[in-house]
Design a protein around this nucleic acid. Structure first.
Lengths: 195, 195
DNA sequence: TTTTTAACTGAACATCCGTTCATAAGAAAA
DNA sequence: TTTTCTTATGAACGGATGTTCAGTTAAAAA
């Protein structure tokens, strides 16, 4: 039996990425087998190899896709203005973008060590590109005299860690809305680099 | 062949924990086999089962040991005083304790999902206990009128995420000393919850 | 209607997994 | 020296792993 009704590559491809994303986020890349993913897609393991050359590429594609979306979305959001405005925009953007993408963010942070060296290098490049966005804002604010910190690089990493940490405890339908959370974090961020 | 010269349980036991710690931190729990660990210990896989009932317990013991050490060390460090003093002490303690324990901290954060439900609950309890230490300090500071934040729980999680994030980029023999890093982070922490 | 093609099956490949256990051997006790 | 005990070996267990591929079938093209 093969090619059941409605089973096209346009359907199975996205299904595969979705299943892989969910399972890898839940159990970890190494702990998930191609057969498990196939079962969730509703297909035999062999069929997955019509959509990915191997398991490693599956992980890499998920991560690159996520990073590409992140950078593209930030490119659209970044519109200049004062350093203070830009920092607020970054803070709110980061939270609004990451919160509904719990699985993707989790994978992007946890599975770096399961990438091949070449794939790791590429993802790392994209991550640094994103960090550079925040670093630019902090540098501009320091030049404007509205921000103050001892070390630019540490301030950048500290703020990103603080914001991304939100994903470890946030649960949908919690006591706070995303808008409230944004504002609470913006308050912490703003003050931490204030003059 | 069995029991070579100098091979006692007093030696193999610690060797096992050390090898497991290193390998799990590097490759992840699911990706490391008992045979790999045994090879690093210098023993056959079967011999490991003189020291751990199974692989799961090995992970759990590593994590509980780490959390116990953390809580015990903080108990010693916490000496009262003003909220500001206590917060500075917490900040410096967290950095000084975590920095030389990169592998342990990494495992404690990354391998939670590989714990059995009961083991997870126990580790989670210890983690919350540690978080409560910081939460107490922030609450005291708010009562004293020296700290201000919108939400106590979020402020707690945000600060811990910020501090722990240090472990993701810090490398020994970097451009900054631990003392310098402590001070830089203390500056960020202090301002973020300042009135 | 017939032919072609994309999509999938199911079995097979060699290899690895965690764990158990009968057995061996060096060290300590007698 | 002989006996006892600890610590290790190495083979074996059933099962899972990523990946390949000849064969099959439904849909699309002719």
């Amino acid at each position: 039996m093969a090619r059941k009704q409605g089973s096209h590559s346009d359907i199975t491809g996205p299904k595969l990425r979705k299943a892989a994303r969910r399972l890898i986020a839940q159990h970890g890349f190494a702990a998930v087998s191609m057969r498990q993913i196939a079962a969730e897609v509703g297909v035999q393991a062999g069929a997955l190899y019509n959509y990915t050359p191997d398991k490693q590429s599956l992980l890499f594609d998920l991560m690159r896709e996520h990073m590409d979306e992140l950078l593209t979305a930030w490119d659209v959001e970044e519109k200049g203005g004062s350093a203070l405005e830009r920092l607020e925009r970054f803070t709110r953007f980061h939270i609004r973008f990451n919160l509904p993408r719990a699985d993707e963010v989790f994978i992007a942070y946890m599975e770096l060590r399961n990438l091949s060296p070449e794939n790791f290098a590429e993802i790392e490049k994209l991550r640094r590109q994103y960090e550079a966005g925040l670093e630019d804002i902090l540098r501009a604010g320091e030049a404007e005299g509205v921000f103050a910190f001892t070390d630019l690089r540490i301030a950048t990493m500290a703020l990103i860690a603080m914001l991304t940490g939100l994903n470890t405890w946030y649960r949908e339908n919690g006591r706070l809305s995303v808008a409230e959370i944004e504002t609470i974090y913006w308050d912490l961020v703003r003050k931490s680099v204030a003059v």
